[in-house]
């Protein structure tokens, strides 16, 4: 096993093999709650190299492509290749943008989750009374706002990127370190998924049931979906249909006041 830090998110351990001290410090700080020395499974391995120019690509788009048996990833100044068959890959990034590794981890987890019937979802999520509630929506829909209004008995899993997968036939939401406007990592716990809410800001608080078709539409619009790959698309569609079939979904129209949480849980 290569030396480095093991970051386990949603029960998926990834060993980040890093020599660069500054990047190691960044990783240990950013993913503190998700570091482990006793992973729940054999870790996937990503060897990270810091170079002056990184992987060279400098655009803002996340580019992901499946080609000749491997995933090619380009994010900001970084470039990575991931070999699904071996569960290993490499990443080159610059010292100037240590955050690149966060974007790469999001892509990697979306790739690793798809064949397991899971997904990363643009959504805040939280646990209340032992049950998980997921709040999805596009940027500006109110994910971070709602998370920021949560009362003390609510444990936040994330205000930006939710991790959902089935465990023993039950969909669970897991905490992630992928933060949005709140800028804080979610709690590293999980709970059975009780309900999915499609967020919209409005003049009053109200909840309307969504049909399963509407739920699939909402999920497909908000699942992190980096690659235009037919097999991956089909896997994520199946996941969206399965979640919609067993988790009740609602439209949550809310005003940004703490009272909205009286309707949750």
């Amino acid at each position: 096993m290569i030396p480095g830090s093991i970051v386990e998110i949603g029960g998926i351990p990834v060993l980040l093999g890093v020599q660069d001290r500054a990047l190691l410090e960044f990783i240990d700080k950013r993913y503190a709650a998700y570091l482990t020395t006793k992973p729940s499974a054999e870790p996937f391995e990503l060897t990270v190299t810091v170079t002056p120019d990184g992987g060279v690509y400098q655009g803002n788009q996340v580019r992901v492509e499946w080609r000749e048996g491997r995933w090619l990833l380009e994010v900001f100044d970084s470039r990575a290749e991931w070999f699904s068959g071996s569960g290993r890959g490499w990443l080159r990034q610059s010292a100037a943008f240590p955050e690149s590794i966060d974007a790469v981890l999001r892509v990697l987890h979306s790739i690793l989750l798809a064949p397991q019937g899971g997904c990363l979802l643009h959504a805040a999520s939280a646990v209340r009374n032992g049950r998980a509630f997921v709040f999805t929506g596009v940027s500006g829909a109110g994910k971070s706002t709602l998370a920021g209004l949560a009362p003390p008995d609510v444990v936040l899993l994330t205000d930006e990127i939710s991790h959902i997968r089935s465990v023993d036939g039950v969909y669970r939401a897991f905490g992630t370190p992928f933060a949005g406007d709140l800028g804080v990592a979610g709690k590293n716990i999980s709970a059975p998924l009780e309900a999915l809410y499609l967020l919209a800001k409005g003049p009053e608080n109200r909840i309307e049931p969504l049909s399963r078709k509407q739920a699939v539409n909402a999920l497909m619009r908000n699942i992190l979906f980096f690659a235009k790959d037919p097999k991956l698309s089909e896997a994520l569609f199946e996941t969206a249909c399965r979640i919609a079939a067993c988790v009740p979904a609602y439209r949550l129209v809310f005003t940004p006041t703490p009272e909205v949480w009286e309707m949750i849980g």
Partner: peptide, 11 residues
């Protein structure tokens, strides 16, 4: 789903 089809173009 609920007696109606939802279809995704994988392309």
């Amino acid at each position: 789903l609920d007696g109606e089809m939802i279809i995704m173009s994988t392309s």
